[in-house]
Design a protein around this nucleic acid. Sequence first.
DNA 1: ATGTAAATGAAAACGATTATTGTTTTTGAA
DNA 2: TTCAAAAACAATAATCGTTTTCATTTACAT
Lengths: 148, 148
Amino acid sequence: MEKSQMRLTYQRKIILEELKNLGNHPTVDEVYLAVKKRLPRISMSTVYRSLEVLSKNGFIKKLEPIDTQKRFDDNVGVHYHFYCLNCGKIKDAPLHESESKEIEEAIKSIEKVIEKRGYKVNGYTLEFWGKCDHCEGGESYGGEKSKK
Amino acid sequence: MEKSQMRLTYQRKIILEELKNLGNHPTVDEVYLAVKKRLPRISMSTVYRSLEVLSKNGFIKKLEPIDTQKRFDDNVGVHYHFYCLNCGKIKDAPLHESESKEIEEAIKSIEKVIEKRGYKVNGYTLEFWGKCDHCEGGESYGGEKSKK
DNA sequence: ATGTAAATGAAAACGATTATTGTTTTTGAA
DNA sequence: TTCAAAAACAATAATCGTTTTCATTTACAT
């Protein structure tokens, strides 16, 4: 959160412009291709670094999956997940079935609204993140996977 | 959804057992390491394939990020996202601010419950998926990115 | 027992991202 | 102004998780 000395270079201006032109949350690759038309010599790494820096400085917002790895669950019932930033584990959010159902109802009604506006909703993901009971309770125990 | 001719082979039985032993949504790698102790010659691809097949046949559940790529957004306000399985675009869910706020309230109160149970909640992700207005309205227009 | 489809293991290929290298700008103090 | 230090650049190689390929083995219905 320090006062930044980020330079809004020519490349970054173009990247910012093209990001806005593209709209709808483009991938890095999509931005790269758009920018490349105006700056044929730009490199992919510059685009990555610039988007990173621009988001760190509040110009844009980064959307990244909490966790990119595939995981598997032997629990087939409906439940929500909690991602612990400290130990990297994914636990089931500590909710009773009635509470989970409550959320589901609320979200289902929102889905109806979305469908009224021309979309077809097939499902949703809701996950929480923070520190799990184990890590929040005792002292941190050096989780192997926390990258952020 | 056809009647499956999946074979519950020796390897798959072990994989299933170890998945249950591990609990808490292990990554493929974690399963691999556990299984390897009992089947030293097993290969990573077998683990990947088996977990895939087991989930397709309802024995377990796969947790995979809707989209693994990083994306960037010039909209910094609070809003939810909609992932279109057809064209691969991520759009803003078509909700008014009041509606979004409504959800946020509901989820905030759930967060409180989770915190009451020893967790620290720093945030959450809620995203919807299905077909966007454009793809649901007209006929499909051969989206480049739909992989699932 | 035999034939066929499915599953396996090893290795290579893959796509997205990050790190490294050497070079070019830019900045701002002397 | 000029010049060293910092920042950004382009190109490339390296990494990570995952998928594919392919030759071999296994399961199982006939």
